[in-house]
Amino acid sequence: MDPFVVLVLCLSCLLLLSIWRQSSGRGKLPPGPTPLPVIGNILQIDIKDVSKSLTNLSKIYGPVFTLYFGLERMVVLHGYEVVKEALIDLGEEFSGRGHFPLAERANRGFGIVFSNGKRWKEIRRFSLMTLRNFGMGKRSIEDRVQEEARCLVEELRKTKASPCDPTFILGCAPCNVICSIIFQKRFDYKDQQFLNLMEKLNENIRIVSTPWIQICNNFPTIIDYFPGTHNKLLKNLAFMESDILEKVKEHQESMDINNPRDFIDCFLIKMEKEKQNQQSEFTIENLVITAADLLGAGTETTSTTLRYALLLLLKHPEVTAKVQEEIERVIGRNRSPCMQDRGHMPYTDAVVHEVQRYIDLIPTSLPHAVTCDVKFRNYLIPKGTTILTSLTSVLHDNKEFPNPEMFDPRHFLDEGGNFKKSNYFMPFSAGKRICVGEGLARMELFLFLTFILQNFNLKSLIDPKDLDTTPVVNGFASVPPFYQLCFIPV
């Protein structure tokens, strides 16, 4: 058959498939802009700032609406009420993970971030239990974070109060905490193996944040037939998995079943207990991918939040002064901060919360999916439909947070200066898919920041009023603009 005829037939089939998918069930789905064949609503979305586009569309179609990214149908949730109703009140029905062709290629359905069903539930339950087990290797997770915080302070001392970009050092600290939990080992910041790991993690975040990856996920045929950065992403992930597998083999040879040292040991012990169960989800494949998931999810998000926190503290020296006064009063100079201190430091706690609220790190979270046909607000959402959640619409709700575009710790303080919780605080998402490392991340943010401010004054290279804190939105995360500062020993 003539190649031209084959091409026309293929394009015609794709067009018909697109029209059929977009028209099927439209009477039951939430409203939304009319999609174009094949490309859907992509032309109506700013790929570099999806969150802003969703906010604009919500003003037209309401808090629940339908979009098509290519052939992929998505239902968008915008605003606290619908997000709570879906992710919390109907948590089980909305607990699936959205379709990610690239991740599915890399992870093969294993791990904790992109798995679904029984596998996801069992691996998540085990990971939560293990991360909360403060007795691994007779050292609590808090001990590990405190140790890394001391190392971080010593690295900052080496800058000798000269101007520096904190990106690298602030990236090393949370990565080392995860390494300590998974591998029972922290690395020197100049260790070549550690630097290679950091390089792969950072490069992957840069790649994932590009519009090209959005295109690959919406048109998965590209993955096999086109060159691009997605190939580098898959190569980096394969490198990390190979490295983790080597460490798993080392653990198998040296493990003491009665004295687990780290996450890998705990997983291997669980595998041993379930070795007679042919349906067990505790396999080497799941261990390797879960460890890679924890490394990827637990490094860049925390380091970016820390980097943004220091920029905001530079911009608002009056806030920094209040935090340091609270540190001096509650902790002093002669001991290290600990998590028990947080309950006695409402202002510092409010500042950490406000940093996370203000920066809105992951504006749309990772997409969910419905696990069955769901009736939601008089609409029928078919099983498997991807759910896109606007966390921006919750964290920047102007009824809950007056002047949401302003950095103001009073958003989390009552009139008496006591810490005030808010149900709208969802930087880790909400419901059954809430970030498994939430507790660890909150511990790291509090301890790293208090250790830094206990030991250093922060000095800006320019007038604080002239510092730009506008986030650089890159399609996946909101990151701070480049800046330098000086760490002046107190």
Rank of each mutant, 00 (worst) to 15 (best):
G343C: 14
E155S: 09
N107F: 10
E241G: 10
F407M: 03
L311Y: 05
L71A: 14
L54V: 10
T159M: 13
V153F: 02
H396W: 15
P174L: 08
F183A: 07
N217K: 10
E285N: 11
V145I: 10
D191S: 09
T55G: 10
D397I: 02
P163A: 13
G40T: 00
G137V: 10
F412M: 03
I182M: 12
E274N: 11
G437Q: 03
K185V: 07
D265I: 01
F376K: 00
F419E: 02
N107A: 12
V394C: 15
E354L: 02
S303C: 07
P409K: 00
G62L: 00
L312E: 04
L57E: 01
R157F: 13
L67N: 00
E122W: 04
A309R: 00
F487T: 03
V177W: 00
L14G: 10
D224I: 04
K322P: 03
T290F: 04
K232P: 05
E155V: 09
Y424K: 09
P337T: 03
F226P: 04
I223V: 08
N41Q: 00
N133D: 13
F263N: 01
I284Q: 08
L90C: 14
G228T: 05
F282K: 02
C179I: 09
S115E: 03
E93S: 11
N277D: 12
D397S: 09
M345R: 00
L388G: 00
K59R: 13
F428E: 01
I178P: 01
L67Y: 04
P363G: 04
G98S: 12
T130E: 05
S115A: 15
T305L: 04
F219H: 09
T290D: 00
N231V: 12
V83D: 02
E154G: 10
I88Y: 06
G96F: 07
T283R: 09
S429H: 02
L9N: 00
E93W: 11
P31H: 07
T167R: 12
S254W: 06
S209L: 10
D349C: 15
P37Q: 01
L87P: 02
D143W: 10
K52T: 12
I387K: 00
K275H: 10
T210Q: 12
R108F: 05
Q184L: 08
V288L: 08
Q484A: 08
R73C: 08
P166T: 04
R108G: 09
L306W: 01
D243V: 15
C372K: 15
T34P: 14
D143N: 09
I381P: 00
K232E: 07
S254M: 07
T470G: 10
V177M: 05
F226N: 03
K28S: 10
H78Q: 07
Y68H: 14
I269N: 10
C10S: 15
G62P: 01
V473D: 15
L312H: 05
N418C: 12
I42Q: 07
T290K: 00
K273I: 09
I182N: 02
L361C: 10
P163I: 13
N259V: 07
K375P: 08
P33E: 00
D262V: 00
Q252S: 10
F134P: 14
C172T: 07
